[in-house]
Design a binder for these strands. Structure first.
Lengths: 225, 225
DNA sequence: CATCGCCGGTTTTGATCATATCCTGTGCGT
DNA sequence: ACGCACAGGATATGATCAAAACCGGCGATG
């Protein structure tokens, strides 16, 4: 009986590289780091209060996910989106995410929907208050709380990858134009969830995603943000 | 004007972790490692003749790509596909790869098609000779030589990720049933390339992919391969 | 009396760090 | 302007610490 299933969660020792990875990921996802900004290992060891090895591993992982970019000369930076890359992301997101939403529909329980409604409320507050940081986190939470219910880990990981590439640019857009005309088709999505209409939910998500991408696209042409 | 584009490639120093990553990746992709097989860092430092740090970084990167799996107890192994994961991979591959093929169509030059035809010839030889290793490499080369012409790095990286998850299981199927009824719709694809018909090319790829996935699906139910 | 399960030590392996080495980019001197 | 030396930072190694798996013995039970 010693090594039992460890129901729920035991006080697991969380490895340092895991923590470092998450922290760095959030920094990228929610806009602490701007596109094009260089990232140094030793700088991160200071800001993340971690050793050099964990930071290196976090960077490797994020590089593999496309959230960071090796510049050839052993420098690392946050990538800047080009128009054609934005097109790729658009295609992939518009394919994967509605699918995830559709798959999630039948697994949604009442409390899931309640949680999503609450998150949507926070997003509205953030938009009203012009709180970019909070909007970004809320938006992320809304989408991925939904997607997780699809129980499709591979598609989920692809979606995360796409958000990692998309996040920094979205942050820049928010910073530039404020939270006024940010996408929020979440009400429509919540209606679809309540009626269990997978197709409608997928359509709502598709609209939300397309809107966000257009928002970013408008900011790109000058010189890749 | 000092650091010019460095046309083609300069004698770049290839970092050790890069080499290690590639070698380990190929081991997974072409079946040196079976699904479920545990992977130890110190074992790899021996077989790959690399230090501990490069191996660790390679593992992190491949973990991020889903080619390896952390088992919670800080052990690493090659993941075994479940049926539902295979469905996810099927959906994603059937979406992404035909798209890549379609995008590549207009960029294909005569010598690209010639190269693909040559690779297809090698695949045929491998199938005829029952050379699984060579078939897998040829098949990979055929698809990705084509996909690279799409000039869509993000979709390409997604496709690579999917192949990394798919590779080990395909290898098992090959080892079990031989190379007899492996997918090879490449002739059809080559015809489409020569006539520049993007839709037909996408359709051919779709058929090829679907066939490969079915092949693996048939082997799964017993107990996840 | 034989078998099963628990418990302890042993050993393998992973995580982290401190350090040595090398590369890249920069600035100074000619 | 060119080349050389310097500095900053990245790469890579080996050592050290800690956790987890492994193995063998002891005691309880049928």
């Amino acid at each position: 009986m010693k090594n039992m299933i460890n129901a729920s969660e035991s006080p697991r020792k969380v490895p340092s590289h895991e923590i470092t990875y998450c922290r760095l990921r959030d920094m990228i996802l929610f806009g602490q780091l701007a596109p094009g900004q260089p990232v140094t290992i030793q700088g991160l060891t200071a800001t993340l209060e971690a050793g050099m090895t964990p930071v290196r591993e976090a960077i490797r992982k994020l590089t593999a996910e496309g959230a960071l970019e090796l510049q050839g000369n052993r420098r690392v930076s946050v990538p800047q989106l080009t128009v054609s890359q934005l097109d790729e992301i658009a295609f992939a997101r518009l394919t994967i995410e509605p699918k995830l939403a559709q798959m999630a529909t039948n697994h949604l329980r009442a409390n899931d929907i309640a949680a999503l409604a609450r998150i949507d409320g926070e997003i509205d507050q953030a938009i009203a208050g012009g709180d970019v940081q909070r909007y970004l986190r809320g938006n992320f939470n809304f989408h991925f709380t939904l997607y997780e219910r699809a129980e499709a880990p591979i598609l989920l990981s692809i979606a995360q990858m796409l958000w990692l590439r998309f996040g920094p640019s979205l942050r820049v857009v928010c910073g530039r134009y404020g939270t006024a005309n940010l996408p929020d088709r979440h009400g429509e999505a919540l209606d679809a969830m309540r009626s269990g209409d997978a197709a409608q939910l997928a359509a709502a998500l598709e609209g939300d995603i397309a809107q966000g991408i257009e928002q970013v696209r408008l900011s790109l042409p000058p010189s890749g943000i």
